[in-house]
Design a protein around this nucleic acid. Structure first.
Lengths: 207, 207
DNA sequence: TAGATTGTTAATCGATTAACAATC
DNA sequence: TAGATTGTTAATCGATTAACAATC
């Protein structure tokens, strides 16, 4: 019967995995699941899943398990993806273009709304459904559109500058594809995607 | 004076960040750093950095700090990126194409060596420096080239199948861009990149 | 009812940090 | 030498797991 206690960030980090797995089960027309089945599919312990979920409420039924659709709705609400968040993509190179055209945001709470670049040769061209806009007007445009989430797909040398502009425009969550740490005020959340970090974590274990 | 004790995976996961930060410092022509400076740039505690590094040896000098170049070489050796690993990319859509052309692998231990797709319209075309090859021959080609690392950039519905073929071809590390868990033998390492997972982890904290 | 699975507690396990002697 | 910073220990902190009563 809890919630609104403090929830550890490491727990929050697992909820999207639970949600993704449940949505996949739903797409397989499954109705009910158990902490054990979820655990096996995700590769963690059943006890941990039950413990994590219990921090937010009692979502299951003893003897039965969890209603998949019900649990999906609870998780969507907890993670605040029971709505659609507009995203601004900065950088219209290969990565930015792939993000602008990515189909995987649909039904998961997000939608790319704008695409920016500073290269005059790219500004005004069309990529996916977007006309590339001039980075000069980034923070203004973001502010006017009330966009809270940005993705950085520019060279490392530009990443901090772009981050600053995003923050100035009111962005509060940044997903940074540039392989460099950026500094932002504590109120702004940052996540990183750098494939090399993942690869180097695996080569340690190779011969 | 240690090493070859058991090193927790969570420590291994931080080493690539240390390496990336040190390489950036080196590119700024810095010679020496301290656990404190590294800690600030990465956003963790100095004690943790010293503790992590001490699991592998004594790499610093009391009163002085760490020689950046020396520590880079140590980390490259520990992570086994003091060599160049060939990578196979499967899927020549937007993500696979971006990976095939990504400049960020250079000098970090990796090189894309082959690109595969199953779409006849893509097979034989050129993307970056690669001619797209027929997925039919994936496991054979991977085996012949002795490739140990694969990246999956195909639709979710194909990901498990591709993973199976990679494993059959001798791949031992997989970076999966499809938003779905894959099952592989315990000897094979898997890492996931799904931007939505990162985004959902941040929306929890937004209003 | 019998069987199954949750929610939760307490114990265990592991990771992080504070502190400081060693030493450059 | 005086000042600085490492390497390492011990204490703290936090996360995971095992176990089981509750209950569907």
């Amino acid at each position: 019967m809890p919630s609104n206690q403090f929830i550890p960030d490491i727990v929050i980090g697992r909820l999207p995995q639970y949600l993704r797995t449940l949505q996949r089960m739903e797409s397989e027309n499954r109705i009910i699941t158990s902490s054990q089945e979820l655990a096996e599919r995700i590769g963690i312990s059943a006890a941990q899943i039950r413990k994590d979920l219990s921090l937010f409420g009692e979502f299951g039924k003893q003897g039965t398990g969890y209603d998949i659709h019900f649990l999906i709705e609870k998780l969507r609400s907890i993670l605040k993806v029971d709505r659609i968040w507009d995203i601004v993509v900065v950088g219209a190179g290969d990565i930015g273009s792939a993000l602008a055209r990515y189909q995987g945001f649909t039904n998961r709470g997000f939608r790319v709304a704008m695409l920016f670049d500073k290269d005059p040769a790219k500004i005004g061209t069309k990529i996916g459904n977007f006309v590339v806009q001039d980075s000069r007007y980034l923070s203004d445009a973001v502010q006017r559109a009330n966009i809270k989430i940005g993705m950085i797909a520019v060279p490392s040398s530009e990443a901090q500058n772009v981050a600053d502009q995003l923050v100035r425009g009111g962005v509060r969550a940044i997903l940074n594809y540039a392989p460099i740490s950026i500094n932002v005020p504590p109120v702004v959340h940052v996540q990183y995607i750098d494939p090399v970090i993942h690869l180097q974590r695996m080569t340690y274990y190779l011969d």
